[in-house]
Design a protein around this nucleic acid. Structure first.
Lengths: 223, 223
DNA sequence: ATTACCCTTGTACCAAAGTACAATTGGCAC
DNA sequence: GTGCCAATTGTACTTTGGTACAAGGGTAAT
């Protein structure tokens, strides 16, 4: 009996996802959470779930921090990110951070079911139209950013988690605590990250990386 | 005789707004601008206006940069943002950045008049349907942004320049060279900045400031 | 002229960041 | 198996970053 965790602060969304889960799995045990703390608690008690549907925006979490922490502490649990947004950069970012799938809330239920089955089978899912539309867009001054993105993609998963936490302004000591590793190790990762990204300080790394997914909080296009 | 500035690059919009202003105020002196530079010039010459209606999109400004610059240099002038869009996130962002109101261009004239009166009386206006939907999504994240902006506004001109360079990831040594001051002085400024912004590392300052989209607001200071 | 604030700089000290080198573990592939 | 690589940790070191304290010069307002 597969254990599936649905984490979203909106009850209606949880209900919709629960329906999809019941269609995709055979007699699933569905556990619901409205906030990150509950998810962590659940995972600690049951060790690992067979699937976790995680909303990006929840009380206590803004953005990818929750994903990073869960992937760090419970790497055995596959995570599918649920989000109201579907910016291609968000999708890439989520998958780069270890998510096994990215499902926009606007996705038709049938496709959600298919996506969950795919992930349960070990695959990774992303919206169809984004898979192809990915290399196309971005007209002008994105060349430098593109290079930078290529470098970010050379980072190992753990290094990406460290970079993510760097992006919140945390000290090495805090990162070590969050990822449950020694500060020495964090330093080793940071050093490696700086080399790979070709910058010479954590602040520069944060600035550069920030430009890549700046729009995750507010798309401020034309007014 | 209240001085009201209407800043919008579209003459027709300025005309419509002018009508609303004349209904909302008693014998207003209406000053019109089509671009940000004109607004800054006007404000410098008259010190502070009684109200500024500011379009988000104007020549030389894309997004909130104009709002931030004006709020930074002329905090005494209440600003109401005019926009063709009415994305709730845009509204929250604008108010978080110190706008006293947000009026979509689709708003009926009668309501525009009421909104302007409300702001003139010291209130803040936002579209009705958003007023109720607002407390739900991000109650504390926005408050934090608002507080942070207030703190940024307490920085001295030179400190803002330093913060600006911090935001590019430069070392103290590089900032010192750019501003032609001693590295010691840069350290003093950074220390003061960190205290005023209530963060404990340059990286955190950069992250926080970056969230406000304040990428360049220091270059006009002391102009 | 006294106050207040900004900008500047110095010294000294402590904490954090980053580098270099070496070593161990575990997984995965050939 | 052997080899490669991610991840971990340690020691030791240098460089930045940041604080605390003190102080001189400039400007503007009271």
């Amino acid at each position: 009996m597969p254990q599936i965790i649905i984490a979203d602060d909106h009850p209606m969304v949880r209900g919709a996802l629960a329906l999809a889960v019941e269609s995709a799995f055979d007699q699933p045990e569905i556990l619901e959470c409205a906030h990150l703390a509950g998810v962590m608690q659940l995972l600690e008690s049951i060790g690992a779930a067979d699937l976790l549907l995680l909303d990006l925006r929840m009380p206590g979490v803004d953005g990818f921090e929750g994903l990073v922490r869960i992937r760090s502490q419970f790497p055995a649990t596959p995570v599918v990110v649920i989000s109201a947004l579907e910016d291609p950069r968000l999708v890439r970012e989520a998958l780069a951070l270890g998510a096994m799938g990215f499902i926009p809330k606007s996705t038709p239920r049938a496709e959600i079911v298919a996506a969950l089955s795919l992930v349960a089978a070990g695959g990774t899912y992303r919206p169809d139209d984004l898979a192809l539309a990915e290399p196309a867009p971005d007209p002008k001054g994105q060349a430098a950013d593109d290079d930078f993105l290529q470098r970010v993609l050379t980072l190992t998963p753990q290094q990406r988690r460290v970079l993510q936490l760097l992006g919140t302004g945390k000290l090495n000591k805090e990162i070590a605590y969050d990822l449950d590793i020694a500060e020495t190790t964090v330093k080793a990762h940071v050093s490696s990250i700086l080399h790979k990204l070709r910058v010479y300080s954590r602040t520069q790394a944060v600035v550069m990386a920030g430009r890549l997914h700046l729009d995750s909080f507010a798309d401020v296009a034309e007014g």
